[in-house]
Structure formats: structure tokens, C-alpha cells
């Protein structure tokens, strides 16, 4: 359950950004979370909901956009989405697949009043 630690990091960045921009209330926090980043959406939301209390983000909603895993084969150039965590090129069977997306763990923006 490292989501508690991740939730704390999110809250720190959100509050700092809100303060810098003179916001009174944080309404929405938009996150980009890659499917292979080992973060569980519901655990993260639960943790965030607990720690946000008493801050200007206490009514903020975590909006998590899960980014699919897309890999590019460095041998044949094939670009494909991977549902399974096994990155063997679906065309030429090579393991030389580089992930283009799916490992994100970032805050895109926040919506504030």
C-alpha cells in the first residue's frame, strides 16, 4: 500500500501549486497514471480522501486517466497496444520492444476556484 505515500506526494504538489496561484479551493486533480506504474486507482483515491481533509483540497476529486501500454518494436517498427505485461512484438515476435507509454505517474493539471 504505497498509495498512501503517493497520495501524500500528490497533495503536497497540489497544495503548493494552488497556493502559488492564489486559489481558494481545489475542485479537481487530473492525474496521468500508466497501466504499468503499479498504482491502484481505488487505493489511491481512498488514501487521498483521508489526507485531503482540512485542507483547501478537501472537496477535490481525483480524476485518474489510465494510460494504456503502447510499445514500439525496435526491429520491425511495429507499434502496438499491450494488454498483457509481456512485450513481444505481435508482428515479428522480437523482444526488442520499447515502451512509448504506460509508465506515467504525473499530475497533469488542477482545477481551482
Amino acid at each position: 500500500m504505497h498509495e498512501a505515500s503517493i497520495a501524500q506526494s500528490i497533495l503536497d504538489i497540489v497544495l503548493e501549486t494552488a497556493l502559488k496561484n492564489g486559489a481558494r479551493t481545489v475542485r479537481v486533480v487530473n492525474l496521468l497514471v500508466g497501466k504499468i506504474s503499479a498504482v491502484d486507482n481505488s487505493a489511491l483515491t481512498t488514501a487521498f480522501d483521508v489526507i485531503k481533509e482540512g485542507t483547501i483540497a478537501d472537496s477535490a476529486i481525483l480524476n485518474i486517466e489510465n494510460i494504456p501500454i503502447v510499445g514500439k518494436c525496435n526491429d520491425c517498427g511495429n507499434l502496438d497496444e499491450y494488454e498483457e505485461y509481456f512485450f513481444q512484438c505481435k508482428k515479428c515476435r522480437s523482444f526488442n520492444v520499447e515502451l512509448i507509454s504506460g509508465e506515467e505517474l504525473s499530475i497533469k493539471d488542477i482545477e481551482v476556484d
Partner: peptide
Amino acid sequence: MKTVEVKKGIL
């Protein structure tokens, strides 16, 4: 309501 860009890694 306004949108403030953050674009920061969570960790």
C-alpha cells in the same frame, strides 16, 4: 473555476 497546469511527476 480555472485550470492550472502542473505537469509534474508525482514522486
